[in-house]
């Protein structure tokens, strides 16, 4: 029964991939090697699509893989399989936290919060490296490292957000604007 197998395999990915969507990628390559559901090159295409559509990358990849294997039921089953371990684990943690919230736990969170912000900032740096820099040609030509068009857009968005701070525009407004600019000025070429 392929759906059951699909659930089981993605449940395992959800259980062992710690640290978000990108952490699932090595597990998916492993899956491509072990089970003949899709090839490694198909998987590369799936990752490209998952990165260029709305929605968390990990979920997009599970949906795409599931669909490739068994159509719409496959897409649903793979995604449900992926999220089931998190949902169970987080509900247990949330219940424990609600029950045992005391000064010791608060002290632990006092240390955790700045670290959490530091880790998110580091994730932001990773996004910046991919979006604003071009490291594919090595580091010999210093100026070629910078992707000028996105950098100028980023600076513009930053300035616009400061100027329009009072209006509290929805992030989607900036995202839509940037997509249009990207298309008009051919950012990818």
């Amino acid at each position: 029964m392929i759906l059951l197998r699909l659930f089981y395999e993605f449940f395992k990915v959800g259980l062992f991939a710690i640290g978000g969507g990108m952490a699932t990628i090595p597990f998916l390559y492993d899956l491509a090697g072990r089970v003949s559901w899709f090839t490694a090159s198909e998987l590369t295409d799936m990752i490209a699509v998952s990165e260029s559509t709305p929605g968390p990358i990990g979920i997009n990849m599970a949906t795409y893989c599931g669909f490739t294997v068994a159509g719409i039921p496959g897409a649903i089953i793979a995604t449900v399989g992926l999220v089931t371990p998190s949902v169970i684990i987080i509900i247990v943690i949330a219940k424990l936290l609600a029950k045992f919230r005391n000064s010791a736990v608060d002290s632990v969170f006092y240390g955790l919060r700045p670290a959490s912000v530091g880790l998110i900032a580091a994730a932001g740096v990773e996004v910046m490296k991919v979006s604003l820099l071009d490291l594919t040609n090595g580091l010999d030509d210093f100026w070629a490292i910078f992707n000028w068009k996105p950098i100028i857009l980023a600076v513009f968005i930053f300035a616009a957000m400061k100027l329009l701070e009072k209006h509290k525009l929805h992030p989607l407004v900036y995202i839509a604007f940037s997509a249009v600019i990207g298309v008009i000025f051919k950012f990818a070429s």
Binding site: V130, S131, P150, L153, A154, G182, V183, F187, A188, S189
Partner: peptide
């Protein structure tokens, strides 16, 4: 192109 803009 759109996504290169969105990522920035």
């Amino acid at each position: 192109n759109a996504f290169a803009g969105i990522r920035a």
